[in-house]
Design a protein around this nucleic acid. Structure first.
Length: 428
RNA sequence: GAGGGUAUAGCUCAGGUGGUUAGAGCGCGAGAUUGUGGCUCUCGAGGCCGUGGGUUCGAGUCCCAUUAUCCUCCCCA
């Protein structure tokens, strides 16, 4: 029996999942990154297990129970990356990028892996497009990073979304807040959900993220994170809000916005959509000012985000946003007979050399079947080649939209096709 | 890790209380049209009904197990 594909991993087949959507979406992201002057970094999909423990945090669920860990034949402990930041920063520190580029702006697109139960919009292998901006600590770059994320969704055509914004402050102010929060929650614990009692122990901030109605009631009067911010973080947040407003980016302050990684400081944000089932987060990110240093680099501020590609595709689907059709080929060759077939083999090669996307029938089917095939490939022209055409050194170029047929000489096939026009939206 | 739904053709799905050759639409292939697509009509191919066991004269249908998948919690993209 054929083994089943690994659970929870997405795959794209051209006719079913429509890999053209992936190309389109990734293309938009790459264009945006170029526009905002970010360069692509490609890092391995696996890294030393220790890297993720140090970067993401031992106490996070991701590290404690969701990583794909394995030992190599050589005895190294490696982990399939559960997120993109750690690997990018590892490369940044290792190659001492801060020397050549005091401000380093990177982007990546690739798969991440988390061993968890699948659900709508949640996969064991999922793709993220992300950026990391290193070496700049001000709210101006925060605004830029958020602006890219929002521009991405705008360009895709996703309009039903909410930008949530919060600040976690510095490690110190955050610690003071957690203390206050735990003090507040402690007497209420008996009434709280099991989940929140566990969070109280392991990661008290996450109590705020609860979905239990009773917990929400109990936490209604809990101290707010923003009230515990240190003055600089407070000013940073104020300025960022000012910038966002100036850029016309709508946001909602959410003092309960808590994100999953331990490394976040100050700015955190999340972009939410109602169109992805129970997963509301299309993407999110934040500032991680201590992380580079923690990984052995110089003290370096940084901010980044990760956007879920599958989730964006789901949101497009459920919102019914039209996705542009991929271009079809320019010409589909229809040989009638063996002599024609031989001629078409050469013709095909000529067309492709001239940068015109082309294909032909390889099965010797009837004219009708070949035209249907041309139709299916969304060919702009069907080039019909039979004995009489061979004799005269021509082909019949049938415009698949107008059904107009033009006889053109094979000697100038590429120029003639271009001369007929209508190629702009076809495959070149 | 916890809970629930589903599993029948390539795809989306029908198959009251078990009964003999398991169906539809779409898609695919051929023909109607000797070298002309999209519409129409006709015909056809394609299923050990997820897997293993059980009950029964008889199981796609009932029972148990198992696997996969979808959904919800946890958590996150």
């Amino acid at each position: 029996m054929l083994p089943a594909p690994p659970s929870g991993a997405t795959q794209a087949r051209p006719w079913i999942e429509d890999s053209s959507r992936w190309h389109w979406l990734e293309g938009i992201f790459r264009e945006l990154c170029a526009l905002y002057s970010y360069e692509e970094i490609r890092t391995p999909v696996f890294e030393a297990t220790d890297l993720f423990h140090r970067a993401v945090g031992e106490s996070t669920d991701i590290v404690s129970k969701e990583t794909y860990d394995f030992t190599t034949r050589g005895g190294d402990d490696l982990t399939l990356r559960p997120e993109g930041t750690a690997g990018a920063l590892r490369a940044y520190v290792q190659h001492r990028l801060h020397i050549e580029r005091p401000v380093t702006k990177l982007y990546y697109i690739g798969p991440n892996f988390r061993y968890e139960r699948g659900q709508a919009g949640r996969y064991r292998q999922h793709y993220q497009a992300g950026i990391e901006a290193l070496g700049a600590g001000g709210p101006d770059i925060d605004a830029e990073v958020i602006a890219i994320a929002m521009a991405f969704y705008t360009r895709l055509g996703i309009t039903r979304l909410t930008l949530k914004l919060n600040s976690l402050g510095t490690a110190e102010s955050r610690a003071r807040y957690v203390e206050a929060l735990r003090a507040y929650a402690e007497p209420l614990l008996p009434e709280m959900s099991e989940d929140n009692r566990r969070r109280y122990q392991t990661n008290a901030l996450r109590m705020l993220d609860t979905k239990h109605p009773r917990d929400l009631e109990l936490l209604a009067d809990a101290p707010a994170l923003t009230d515990y911010l240190d003055p600089e973080s407070r000013a940073h947040l104020d300025t960022l809000q000012h910038y966002l407003s100036g850029l016309g980016i709508a946001y909602e302050m959410d003092p309960r916005l808590v994100r999953g990684f331990d490394y976040y400081t100050r700015t955190t944000f999340e972009i939410q959509s109602p169109d992805v089932g129970a997963q509301s987060a299309l993407g999110g990110g934040g500032r991680y000012d201590g992380l580079v240093e923690q990984l052995g680099g110089p003290p370096t501020p940084g901010i980044g985000f990760g956007l879920g590609i599958e989730r964006a595709l789901i949101a497009l689907e459920t919102a019914g946003v039209p996705v542009p059709e991929p271009p079809g080929i320019v010409a589909f060759l229809c040989p009638l007979g063996d002599a024609a077939r031989a001629a078409c083999v050469n013709l095909l090669s000529h067309l492709r050399s001239a940068n015109l996307a082309a294909d032909m029938d390889y099965t010797g089917r009837k004219m009708k079947a070949m035209l249907e095939q041309a139709d299916k490939l969304r060919a702009r022209y069907a080039l019909i080649v039979g004995d009489s055409e061979i004799e005269r050194g021509v082909v019949q170029a049938r415009d698949m939209r107008t059904t107009q047929q033009t006889e053109i000489p094979v000697a100038h096939i590429a120029e003639s096709l271009r001369g007929l026009g209508g190629l702009s939206e076809a495959g070149r």
